[in-house]
């Protein structure tokens, strides 16, 4: 509790998943790819997930 706060630097944050775009496909660790794909899988495939949103009928 006795320090001067570190000044946040001014570089804008890179977009998320930057490593996946800047690593060649053949060099992306499988564990990393699986972690991201699994998180996505759990998001879209849970019972309360919303797959298709539409205007008028099915929002």
């Amino acid at each position: 509790m006795d320090r001067i706060a570190v000044r946040p630097d001014q570089i804008p944050t890179p977009p998320p998943l930057d490593d996946l775009r800047h690593t060649a496909l053949g060099e992306i660790p499988l564990s990393r790819a699986r972690a991201v794909a699994d998180a996505h899988h759990h998001r879209v495939n849970r019972p309360t997930g919303v797959d298709v949103q539409g205007f008028g009928s099915a929002i």
Binding site: P16, R21, L25, A33, H40
Partner: peptide, 20 residues
């Protein structure tokens, strides 16, 4: 653009995860 980057990262992750 950041969202478009997320999309590309996701596709690449999905493909690598499918590769085995």
């Amino acid at each position: 653009r950041q969202l478009a980057s997320v999309h590309l990262g996701m596709v690449r992750a999905l493909l690598v995860a499918l590769s085995p």
